[in-house]
Nucleic acid binder design. Structure first.
Lengths: 205, 205, 205, 205
DNA sequence: ACGTGCGGGACACCCCGTTAGT
DNA sequence: ACTAACGGGGTGTCCCGCACGT
């Protein structure tokens, strides 16, 4: 009875709704093509609320990279590779997850959200570039660290340079996802993924 | 006497100037972010001329993919790999050309023009997607054909699947170029390129 | 018969209509408070046309100062004082015109258009300041030149400094008009005008 | 014990800070162009506090005229002229103060705060007009009263009409300040001030 | 007395496309 | 083949004001 609260006052939830709507909008239409009007409409709020929580479109985009995409990377790459006992297998599993899971949900049609923003905004805005590169860097470091562990444990060949392999894996992953976007076919993605896993297999010690 | 032509009427040259200006504009600002006004300004013509030669922004974008980008791909990938005597070495050379040449000219900062359009427009417009995919397909086929030649000639291991390797090479190349865009550093690109060349080396028969 | 022209294509007339609508809008609501939407509505055109003829709001404001206000100053001050045989009387007539004519038409309620823009925009925008100052300078020079003629002809006292008197006349005129705006009464304007004319009379040689 | 007040509650000080911030903001950007958000930011408070002390933007503007500007006028014009023994000299001193003092501090660049508001808001809002006119009226009355004293004492010519001269002095003062704003040069202000003082000198009995 | 999440509406800007005309 | 006036709509931005909460 007491808790009537017709209009809810939940700043964090409002902010979250807008971030998620923005993530989806930018994922579909790009950052420049994305419309704030559409975002607030989907989020069920107003432009006034948006400009209360964010300083502008740019600030909203930055928050999407840091909060939404950063969390996704954490769940998919950083956590699985931390304290891995068999780095190569875990890497292969993460790589295969793209074609195994994401294809079903249809998300792959729009491409990797981070890569999309990277291609579009890195050359145009230094703030975007730094934030995006930070995400990729942490991804590369996580992979390189796992590979180094494998080298130390003897499960990976001694002549393998963890940094270079990590750079190639990340690049290939970006490329494979992009391939799917333009080919609109699973086959090319699957074949490239197979070749990548074969390559990783060849590194086993 | 007949050809006085105070004001030059050169439809093909006009069209070409607009295409090149459009290519540069879309390369820098993306297709959606690119401005027709800016394009005609750079090309030194007017909107009327543009809409005389092209049906609209979309049609202009299609022409950029087909005419400008198609020709670039031909020169860099298709011609060098045709009738190659040593496919792996030629492939490695083409792959290294990105970091060897393009870095000097600064072009890599804006990313691969084709990949940029692929990321941005493939999910949004079917016409773009088909044209872009056609380019990538011809690139993959050229690589696969060269690899198959190598297998037949015995310079490449028999268990190599040309199609899969071609898919990975193209994807990795896309990813490496994208990496450069966001990292703004040559180092990561170089390391990934090295790993890719090592991988190709391991395929030698 | 040949000149049917259903939709008239008269760029100069369109530009003129927009300039006059802009002049009125800025006169009533100030430059910052003035609305482009309202201007095009009054002018019977569209925003597209406005942005075709002017680069933006600022450019429109500049054109108002140069074209509209400049012409008004010419008619009211510069031409009457040129080749004047009795500068003091002509000056007094011009000064009295404000209370004699403008009060009837109600224009004085909104203040002097040039002075309004001067007060509002001079400190905020250098382009405005320069254009406004140019108008005032030509007004001061015209008055000073007429006074100098009078001194030379002996109709004005020898110890009169034309430049200083011109500066005072212009300043007083600005102030009198402003006085009317805030007092909303003719009386104060009339009295100040009388005192100004008395002062001018005292300069007679 | 009662007065713990970790967060200070000083309503009068808060109100004062907001008034001063508002005065500066309106002085620089005009009333319509001034931003409440900017005002509360400068004042170090919030919109809630502002709307607690004032009913809205208009009410805040009124308070600026009455409290801040009214006090300034009192100090500069009303008090010096009250019970003056030599009204003309005191007037000349007040008039010269503008070019003597304010030019150094740079305040003259933004124009007379009261005149700015008068030009902008008098025609748009009756409440503003009345308050502004009240200030100018008290200024004119103070000058006229001082002049009348001088006439009675014989230090000023008998045929001088104090009301008219006061009206001209106020108007000229407004105009001179405005002149400085648009000319951005001391010279014109100085010359007009000289001419005004000469005029006042000519009234001596 | 004061802080803040939030609403709704205006603003200037600029876009792409069309059409009358050369 | 090419020009330029013009239409209408959508953009990001930001504003003032309110009402809930402390």
């Amino acid at each position: 009875m007491t808790t009537q609260t017709r209009r809810v006052r939940a700043p964090e939830a409002t902010r979250r709704k807008m971030l998620e709507a923005a993530f989806a909008e930018f994922h579909h239409n790009g950052f420049q093509g994305g419309s704030l009007n559409h975002i607030v409409e989907v989020a069920g709020t107003t432009k006034g609320a948006l400009f209360h929580h964010f300083r502008g479109k740019l600030d909203l985009g930055y928050a999407v990279v840091d909060d939404i995409i950063g969390r996704m990377l954490l769940e998919r790459w950083l956590q699985p590779l931390a304290n891995s006992r068999d780095p190569l297998s875990d890497l292969q599993r993460a790589v295969r997850q793209l074609v195994a899971t994401d294809i079903q949900t249809g998300d792959w049609l729009q491409g990797c959200p981070l890569n999309n923003l990277a291609q579009e905004m890195s050359p145009l805005d230094e703030g975007f570039r730094r934030r995006i590169n930070k995400q990729y860097d942490s991804m590369r470091q996580a992979i390189a660290a796992a590979l180094a562990d494998g080298v130390a444990a003897g499960t990976i060949r001694r002549d393998v340079d963890p940094g270079s392999v990590a750079a190639l894996v990340v690049a290939a992953q970006m490329g494979i996802w992009g391939t799917g976007k333009s080919s609109q076919t699973e086959e090319v993605m699957l074949r490239a993924t197979d070749a990548l896993c074969d390559y990783l297999e060849s590194l086993r010690g």
